[in-house]
Amino acid sequence: MRTPVQFSLNGEEVAAFVEGGANLLDALRETVGDLTVKGGCWQGTCGTCTVLIDGAPRLACITLAETCAGRSIETVAGLRRGPDLHPLQTAFIEHFAAQCGYCTPGMLMAAKALLDRKPSPTREEVVEAIGGNICRCTGYEPIIEAILAASRAGDRRSA
């Protein structure tokens, strides 16, 4: 049995028919076609599939697609502003904050949720914000540095 679901994805209205019980990760990747969202464990433990639902970081693999009707969903596909990279993307590049790149989309979205809520976080707040996202390559330090650098870049722009 398929159910119609309508939600906003990166500011655009999308409608999809999803299987009963389908999770948001499969709905985004297999039905809508947003392949920037990655699956790592499909059981809500690794943070790889993190997306923003109404601004809050959520694990797409354990979110029922049907519960997203009428919500606003953000993924890395919507992070760029036209041709320009988001300050977080620039900071990840400059600080070597990605190696294999597989956890990066989820990591970026967890970081965006933090900076949207708190533009100048402390290091502890950054660590807390990405505490549910597993990275097996970098050892986290470059990621923390990148997020802090992005927050400083944001400060400069708004000043």
């Binding site: 890395v76 990279l85 970026l108």
Partner: peptide, 23 residues
């Protein structure tokens, strides 16, 4: 010296195609 990974732009934009990103 610090250098930029050649594939990092794809990584931060979600454009890097892993095996399961082919349909």
């Amino acid at each position: 010296r610090p250098t930029q990974r050649q594939d990092i732009l794809g990584h931060v934009t979600g454009a890097s195609a892993f095996y399961d990103d082919h349909r």
